[in-house]
């Protein structure tokens, strides 16, 4: 029996406001800076959220952060998918930026899996042309001298 099929592309082409906290974070990325946010209990959320998941309170002032941090867990992608941030083998990592109490997801361009380990230090590699997106961070890279 012949199975008939037809292509179907589903798209939602909305324009969304990013709001005061995420919008400020994305603006900082466009300027080549990382910025977290402080909660009412004094913790620094990175990436920043409008509300503290632990209390439901609105978060407060932005906290400038350095482009460096520590890998808290990682996974190795030997065969990147088309939608991935790098087109060569790379690591996903949760990265706790120095001065933050939470970790953010991004890619680490480490070359090979044996260059990765939990606890290693990494630093941001910025894209030259930035638009106000998480992809303004091209990826993170291992800090020299940090190879295991």
């Amino acid at each position: 029996m012949d199975v008939l099929s037809a292509p179907y592309v589903l798209e939602y082409t909305y324009q969304r406001s990013t709001g005061p906290v995420i919008g400020r974070f994305l603006t900082a990325l466009r300027d080549g800076r990382l910025e977290g946010v402080r909660t009412t209990t004094g913790r620094v959320l990175m990436p920043p959220l409008e509300y503290d998941p632990a209390t439901g309170e609105a978060t407060g002032e932005p906290v400038p952060l350095p482009p460096d941090g520590v890998v808290t867990t990682w996974a190795w992608v030997a065969t990147p998918r088309p939608g991935h941030p790098l087109d060569r083998p790379f690591a996903w990592a949760l990265i706790r930026i120095d001065g933050a109490d939470t970790a953010m997801l991004h890619a680490v361009d480490a070359g090979a899996a044996d260059a990765m380990r939990t606890g290693m230090r990494v630093t941001a590699r910025w894209r030259a042309e930035r638009t106000g997106s998480i992809l303004d961070l091209a990826c993170f890279v291992p800090v020299a001298g940090e190879a295991p």
Partner: peptide
């Protein structure tokens, strides 16, 4: 999340692998 996670193309297996590594660690 459409700002921090979706633009990275973070697929479910990759995210689960981060969790698995944390458990192994």
């Amino acid at each position: 999340d459409p700002y921090y996670l979706a633009p990275l193309g973070a697929d479910a297996i990759s995210l689960a692998a981060l969790q698995a590594r944390a458990l192994l660690d």
